[in-house]
Design a protein around this nucleic acid. Structure first.
Lengths: 190, 190
DNA sequence: GACACTTCTTGATAAATGTCAAGTACTTCT
DNA sequence: AGAAGTACTTGACATTTATCAAGAAGTGTC
């Protein structure tokens, strides 16, 4: 039986025993979903941890008529609405797919049970959260220390693969600027 | 024997058995330190988790001649340099005390051992990271969705206790604006 | 292939915020 | 108390970035 990419990625974060891997496989769901699918809507509770096998997704807040992208995730990475998943409160953000995507997911209930069942499970839970935390930390530092142009350049440098696939208007709000500003930066007029 | 405020706060996050509490007490250090003490310097590895019993602390990045405050913590809360603590790489930020402070801390090595030793330890580790993550999440949302004035007003509303004690020039950079902008907002000239 | 729709570009202008500079009020230190 | 440093205020001006508007280019659909 082939190992799931989800599990491969997890074992790169924390080693998992054979028994744990087998158990984990039981609780995973794999779906092929088309572009524009809304995976999580505002008001729903995020009760799943998602993993993108192939494809692209983003989370965004609706701010009046504006959509403000809060998170972007490509293949081989995890995604959830942190606030809603961790607190089990209704989500303030929407998660939608930006490409046809193969999504692997597990419910929070199943994962919590799994975490408690294996000693390495709890460690995994911690490491996953820490993985997310480090991304927030870096992102916040970027917003505090860099100008719009530098934020764009850094993103392009660090995520060359995603950069070309994300509609710029979404990347713009993710990097805390308007689509017009981003367009001017990229056409070297700023 | 009186319970440490550190442990009180932890048990509010995750229940700890008597045995775990006793063990935890063994690894805690309590220090009374004067204002302006540098708790963690740039280049050092953050190998302790801190807890502020009384007092006030901040973390900041040096950006040329500018200091950019990245985190502010008052009594009854935890603090570390997330990047350095989690990756054990040299810290890019400084942690300093803004008031005379009673600091409780434990080394990462001792904590990791503690986490592994008790089933609730690992859960605690996760919950602590999640606690931090939720703060990052909220802060990032504030930066993305609010204007300078609204960020100040929200901070004043949500942290009335800290607000009056933090030198405004530090709070300003924490909220991603200059000291002058903050001054004008607070004197109602904006 | 033509239509509709969305994304991107570009320009003119405005608003928010930053920079520089000078002065005042507070603290802290001795 | 006086000196020295630090925090805050205020004004004039600069810069960055946003807003509004219109059009061009690209994409998906039937």
């Amino acid at each position: 039986m082939p190992t799931s990419p989800f599990i491969n990625r997890l074992t790169a974060i924390a080693p998992l025993s054979e028994a744990a891997q087998t158990q984990l496989k039981e609780i995973l769901t794999r779906q092929r979903l088309p572009k524009s699918t809304v995976v999580l809507a505002v008001g729903e509770v995020c009760d799943r941890l998602y993993f993108i096998e192939t494809g692209l997704a983003r989370a965004f807040y609706q701010d009046g008529p504006e959509e403000i992208t809060s998170w972007i995730v490509g293949e081989d990475d995890f995604m959830y609405s942190a606030y809603s998943y961790l607190t089990q409160q209704p989500s303030l953000e929407t998660i939608e797919l930006l490409e046809d995507t193969v999504l692997i997911s597990a419910t929070r209930a199943d994962l919590d049970e799994f975490y408690g069942q294996f000693p390495e499970g709890n460690l995994l839970r911690s490491l996953l959260t820490e993985h997310y935390l480090l991304q927030y930390d870096q992102r916040l530092r970027g917003l505090q220390m860099l100008r719009a142009k530098e934020r764009v350049n850094r993103y392009a440098r660090e995520h060359p693969n995603l950069f070309s696939r994300i509609p710029w208007k979404h990347l713009a709000t993710y990097l805390n600027m308007t689509a017009e500003t981003m367009s001017r930066i990229l056409s070297k007029k700023m």
